[in-house]
Amino acid sequence: MNTSEGWTEIAFNNRDPVYMQVVRHFKERIATGHAKAGQAIPSRRELGALMKINPNTVQKAYKEMEDQQLIVTEGNLPSRITQDTHVLSQIRAELLGSAVRDFLQTVQKIDIPIDELLLMVERQYREMGAKHD
């Protein structure tokens, strides 16, 4: 099976550490279900070539993900996404948390009561859901 499938080049910004952006990219894929628990991921070299980034950076990103127990590497086998449900749900929570934080930071500038805001969020969320169906 081709492990490199679906891992395409992503638009990096230049100011955040690239390895952190790679980690984040992985988390997003896991949270959105594009990458399944236990799935094999590309080798460091493959990913470097795919994303057109320095292999040392990929190495650093993989190291970081191993430290965060996002991926597991056993012996010489390709690294896999963890099957630890605790970690997986944590990722989901983390991504959602940071998205909500970003959203609130923007909204805070506009003085709006929380009830009104929640109503708006609910309505728009439903509309988006309707469009998607």
């Binding site: 230049n14 550490p17 690239v18 390895y19 057109k52 950076t57």
Partner: peptide, 30 residues
């Protein structure tokens, strides 16, 4: 995103020399 380290040459001397990822993490600069 390809390079590990940048060495900036100006007026015949090295004016800056840094690892790109460190520069991004520590000073948020590209």
């Amino acid at each position: 995103h390809l390079i590990d380290k940048a060495v900036l040459l100006k007026d015949g001397v090295v004016s800056q020399s840094f690892h790109c990822e460190e520069m991004r993490s520590e000073e948020g600069k590209s």
